[in-house]
Design a protein around this nucleic acid. Structure first.
Length: 263
DNA sequence: GATATATGTGTAC
DNA sequence: TACACCTATATCG
């Protein structure tokens, strides 16, 4: 159940468990047997997130490319004296180091990329709000000349990467922008506010390992519903008016018609 | 146990 | 625009 913050958090958590080590790579479920064999026994040099994609770079030049999609999940376990933890459910890949095992269940994408394929992948992902090397201006250039609704463009990972369905509604509400406002109606200043808010919120998401868009909310001291402003809600926390729910880019979006300007 | 739903993306029509 | 992908979980019965 990931947006960009989940993947960056996983990269951060898994790095000390796996990076620098020779990994035992298996496919307990069997559907990635070939790829696992290609990576097995190789040294993992680095783990890096690009938007919602996770790359495990190996010394051979190959990279394991994981995209969780809607269903995928990581499970991490420490190696114990009596061996590794039993795989839970359909484990597509297990990456085991001397100290830990990382299991990946139900990923949308699970493949081995050669260096050229990796370059191609990174090339088609837009600037990632969580990466220091992101060039926000590339996203604005696309938004400014598009007639598509900003609510669609925000979710388009080739425009900008990392934002998913919950953050979309939350960011647009916080910035008082209507999801149906065309990209071309978004001024550069408004875009900068939107980008900065996305960066801020996803950074909080990485730090807290949870989506939090309400000021001061903490995962340990609140229920999910208290951490978001508008996603899944029926009433606008700002004006008290009714929230409208509709589909945009085939996903549910929440908006307050009174608070969010159409541009 | 069955069913609906989910923080996603790629492809075909 | 619809569906395929394909797994976990929540909710209902």
């Amino acid at each position: 159940m990931p947006e960009g913050h989940t993947i960056h958090r996983e990269a951060r958590d898994q790095r000390p468990m796996l990076a620098g080590q020779i990994l035992t790579v298996t496919s307990p479920q069997g559907r990635f047997a070939e790829g696992a064999a290609r990576l097995n026994g190789q040294r993992c040099l680095a783990i890096e997130a690009y938007g919602k994609h996770l790359l495990y770079r190996f010394a051979t030049g190959d990279a394991l490319h994981i995209h969780l999609g809607l269903f995928g999940i990581f499970r991490k376990s420490e190696k114990r004296e009596d061996g590794e933890a039993e795989p839970k459910g359909a484990v597509r890949v297990r990456l085991a180091s001397s100290s830990h095992a990382v299991d990946i269940n139900g990923p949308n994408t699970c493949e081995v990329l050669d260096p050229a394929q990796e370059v191609s992948l990174i090339g088609r992902i837009g600037p990632d709000v969580l990466r220091a090397d992101a060039v926000a201006q590339k996203a604005y250039a696309k938004i400014a000349k598009s007639r598509a609704p900003i609510g669609v463009l925000l979710m388009d990972q080739s425009v900008m990467a990392g934002v998913g369905n919950i953050y979309r509604s939350e960011i647009l509400w916080r910035q008082k922008i209507h999801p149906e406002a065309p990209g071309s109606s978004i001024s550069e200043v408004v875009f900068q506010g939107l980008w900065a808010d996305a960066v801020q919120l996803l950074e909080i998401g990485v730090r807290e390992n949870a989506i939090i868009t309400v000021e001061g909310a903490l995962p340990s001291r609140s229920k999910y519903g208290e951490r978001v402003n508008i996603f899944g809600k029926t009433q606008c926390p700002a004006c008290g008016g009714a929230i409208r729910v509709f589909e945009l880019a085939s996903r549910r979006v929440y908006a307050c018609e009174a608070c969010q300007a159409r541009g």
